[in-house]
Design a protein around this nucleic acid. Structure first.
Lengths: 106, 106
DNA sequence: CAAACTTATGAACAGTTGTTCATTTATACA
DNA sequence: TGTATAAATGAACAACTGTTCATAAGTTTG
């Protein structure tokens, strides 16, 4: 059973975990990548072309972002014919973004 | 009233908010800075020397991290005599780290 | 198989970030 | 006022990141 964190609980991470958390944060910390997460949070999966059109990001640049995020475990992909479909693998990042986005002062 | 996010809720952020979220994530995405947040989550405030000793980070480097985090609104500081005490201003980052840290696969 | 389409890759480059070191500023106290 | 202590600053530099461009690789269809 996973206990929900009490408000303002004291953190208690090992060095290793801090590095992993930093890694995930870093991987997500970019407007385009957040937009990708946001978009995929509302769709089971989308092709590169879909994402490129919806976000208005050029193919090559998007591909770099996508492959990076896949490499780091945030996304997964499968090919269907000519298309490659990406989907959210690490759904927790949605919660993280949600959490920060809920901050009234932003 | 702020509603808690439903599990796997769809994100819906404006471009501006995505940039702000990215900014916060980026500011936090570093093992030392996460360690700082962790440490301060358990103390009202700590001096630079306190933090330096507890985290084993050299004074100047720590100062760079601290002033950066303060500049970006994550920390605040007040002087008391020779010491400068830092404390957590944006407590939401604790929740963000908490959330990610709770991922079982980390 | 050639042409069209979709996505990935790699080189190149600018810009940013993390770190170290030396120096400076601010405060306390003898 | 001089010395000690605490923290900030700035220059310098290596490492990393984001972006563009040109090209390659995989797939479908004629």
């Amino acid at each position: 059973m996973i206990l929900p964190a009490a408000p303002d609980a004291e953190l208690n991470l090992t060095t290793e975990k801090m590095e992993k958390v930093a890694f995930i944060l870093k991987t997500t910390a970019h407007p385009t990548r957040i937009a990708i997460v946001q978009l995929l949070s509302g769709h089971e999966s989308l092709s590169v072309t879909d994402i490129s059109e919806k976000l208005n990001v050029e193919q090559s640049l998007l591909s770099h972002h996508l492959t990076g995020m896949k490499l780091k475990g945030i996304l997964s992909s499968t090919r269907d014919g000519k298309n490659i479909f990406y989907s959210l693998k690490m759904r927790e990042v949605v919660d993280v973004i949600q959490c920060l986005a809920a901050c009234t002062f932003l």
